[in-house]
Simulated assay, not measured.
Amino acid sequence: MSAKSRRRRHEAADNGAKLPEPLPPEFAILRDIAPPIWEEHSLRLVPGSAIEGFPDFEGWWLRDSSGSAVGLRLDHHEDVSLQEKVRATAEGVESFIQEAGASSGRSNWPPCPAHPRTHPLASRMVDDGVVWCCPETSEQVALVGQLLDS
C-alpha cells in the first residue's frame, strides 16, 4: 500500500472520531456509526455554511464520497421536542447511509442483531428517549447514540 493510500485510509478512519464537541443531543446518531461505515462511504461532517447555496444553514452536513449530503439541523422550531429532533435526525442519517450502501449491496444499516440479513433496526420514540428496535418484534436494542455500546 502506498503512503498516499495509507494517509487516505487514516484520514477516512479518523472521520468517525471528529464529531462536533460538544455533540448536540439531536446528533446522537453520529455515535452509532462505526468507523468502518465512515471509511467505506468516505463519510465526513461539513459545517452547514460550507455548502454553496446554504449560507444560513445552522447545523452540519453529512457527506459521502459521491458528494451527496444530508443536513443535520440545529435550527428546528421551538415547539419540536428533543425526542422529535433526535428521531428526525436518526431517520435522515439512517436513510442516507442505506442509500450510500445500496450501490455496494450493503443497505441494511444499522443491522438488526436478531435478523441481520433481513432488515435494519428502526428508530422509535419511547418514554425515555429514542431507541433502535427490531421492526419485526419491537424488541429494543439500544438508545440512539448508544448502539455501539450495546
Results as ranks from 00 to 15, higher is better:
Ile97Gln: 01
Cys134Pro: 05
Pro47Ser: 08
Val80Cys: 07
His41Ser: 06
Ser95Asp: 13
Pro35Ile: 05
Phe57Thr: 03
Ser95Gly: 10
Gly53Lys: 10
Val144Pro: 01
Pro22Ile: 05
Ala28Asp: 11
Asp32Thr: 02
Asp128Phe: 05
Val46Gly: 02
Glu99Arg: 14
Asp75Ala: 08
Phe54Val: 09
Ala17His: 13
Ala12Phe: 01
Gly53His: 10
Ser103Phe: 08
Glu139Phe: 07
Leu147Asn: 05
Val126Cys: 01
Trp109Pro: 07
Gly105Ala: 01
Pro22Cys: 05
Ala102Asn: 07
Asp149Trp: 07
Ser103Thr: 14
Leu45Gly: 08
Ser2Val: 02
Ala34Gly: 02
Leu148His: 01
Trp132Leu: 02
Gly48Phe: 09
Pro111Ala: 11
Pro24Asn: 09
Arg44Ile: 06
Ala114Leu: 11
Leu62Pro: 03
Glu40Thr: 09
Phe27Glu: 06
Leu19Ala: 01
His41Thr: 03
Thr118Trp: 10
Val46Phe: 04
Ser123Tyr: 00
His119Glu: 04
Ser68Asn: 13
Val70Arg: 09
Glu84Ala: 15
Pro120Cys: 11
Arg6Gln: 14
Val46Thr: 14
Asn108Leu: 15
Gly59Trp: 10
Gly129Pro: 02
Ala100Asp: 05
Glu21Val: 08
Met1Phe: 11
Ser49Asp: 12
Asp75Tyr: 08
Pro113Asn: 05
His77Gly: 15
Ala114Ser: 13
Pro35Trp: 09
Ala102Glu: 15
Val86Phe: 00
Val46Tyr: 05
Pro55Ala: 03
Gly92Asn: 11
Lys18Ile: 04
Gln83Pro: 03
Arg7Cys: 09
Gly16Met: 03
Asp56Cys: 03
Gly105Glu: 02
Pro24Glu: 12
Cys112Asn: 10
Lys4Glu: 15
Lys4Ala: 15
Glu139Thr: 13
Phe96Leu: 04
Ile29Asp: 00
Glu78Ala: 12
Pro35Ala: 07
Asp64Ile: 06
Arg73Lys: 15
Leu19Trp: 01
Phe96Ala: 01
Pro113His: 04
Pro20Met: 14
Asp79Tyr: 13
Arg31Asp: 02
Arg9Thr: 08
Pro135Lys: 02
Ser49Lys: 12
Trp38Pro: 00
Ile37Asp: 14
Asp75Asn: 15
Trp109Met: 12
Trp61Asn: 05
Ile51Tyr: 10
Leu148Cys: 05
Glu26Asp: 10
Gly67Trp: 06
Val131Thr: 06
Leu74Met: 14
Pro22Asn: 06
Ala34Trp: 04
Ser42Pro: 01
Pro120Glu: 09
Pro47Thr: 08
Cys134Ser: 07
Phe96Met: 04
Arg63Val: 12
Leu121Asn: 00
Asp75Pro: 07
Gly145Asn: 07
Phe96Thr: 00
Arg31His: 08
Glu94Tyr: 05
Ser95Leu: 13
Ala69Thr: 07
Glu26Cys: 13
Ala12Thr: 01
Asp79Lys: 13
Val141Asn: 02
Lys4Ser: 12
Ala50Met: 08
Asp64Leu: 06
Phe27Thr: 03
Arg7Asn: 10
Cys133Val: 08
Trp60Pro: 05
Glu40Arg: 12
Pro116Ile: 00
His77Phe: 14
Ser2Met: 06
Phe57His: 12
Ser95Lys: 12
His41Asn: 10
Leu82Gln: 15
Lys4Thr: 11
